[in-house]
Design a protein around this nucleic acid. Structure first.
Lengths: 139, 139
DNA sequence: CAATTATATCGTATTATACGATACAACAAA
DNA sequence: TTTGTTGTATCGTATAATACGATATAATTG
């Protein structure tokens, strides 16, 4: 008998598999990971990316450069320390990230439309709770 | 005001961001997509992979070869048509896929442990419903 | 037997990933 | 003011991944 975490992961990966966007972007894993970090956590510079990806600072710098060239991110200097750069997603970057990590909005809507209001509400509350607790939890 | 699909996607990507495994594998996007397809849908051959990724059959064949070399997948001949190969994940392939697409089991357990039984049950039921409907829905 | 299908290999071109060495700019401490 | 440190960037180098057209082989189908 599977434990609960296994079961939830089964559901989790099934949901993603069936509801993800058709992947059309030629995008790589490292690009997605970096943009996820930028999107979900503020105050990101090259050093933070190097740590997050567990690569050297020069490698992280190259990654940032490539994403900048693709206009997925922009860099701003930290006024408090002009050696540092703050890295932000552009609108275009957000769109690419969305298409490669989120559930397809049309598919999700269609699924929700076939649920009754109570079920919809239950799903929303459940994901909300899980999201909030996931953020709060110290690992 | 965001629509519901936006909101759910916010939760969805937040959950993944906070609960994913630390990425240690040097794995690429195409590898993950292929293994997801094999894992979630049976009867996969090179042609199906070419369609799924929207690449040519020779490119798909190269992808399959690389995954085979890494011992993430194995190929079996279809007895009904020996030109065709059935592609299956190895144990190792499943582990790599899990680490790169599932929520980290320890993190998930820790979060669940801080919820009461009612909340846990609600989350399980919600993901179950969403998973089942996602599978059934025609897009 | 000829045509078609499924896959594999090779050559080629481009892009991505990674790092050590090195460099420059900015900051901090003495 | 000088020296040491920090943060990032660039370059050269090596390897791997992605993609396809051309070509080949084996198996199936009509």
């Amino acid at each position: 008998m599977k434990n609960k975490a296994d079961l939830l992961n089964q559901y989790w990966t099934d949901i993603y598999f069936h509801l993800h966007y058709i992947h059309t972007d030629k995008i790589t894993h490292q690009a997605i990971r970096i943009m996820q970090l930028i999107d979900k956590q503020g105050n990101i510079g090259v050093s933070e990316i190097a740590s997050f990806l567990n690569v050297s600072h020069n490698t992280a710098s190259e990654h940032v450069k490539r994403l900048e060239n693709k206009q997925f991110i922009i860099k701003k200097r930290d006024p408090a320390d002009e050696r540092k750069a703050f890295i932000c997603l552009t609108g275009r970057g957000k769109e690419v990230l969305d298409r490669n990590t989120s559930l397809d909005q049309e598919k999700l809507k269609q699924v929700l439309n076939e649920l009754d209001e109570k079920e919809q509400c239950a799903i929303e509350q459940a994901l909300k709770i899980l999201s909030e607790r996931a953020k709060q939890c110290k690992f």
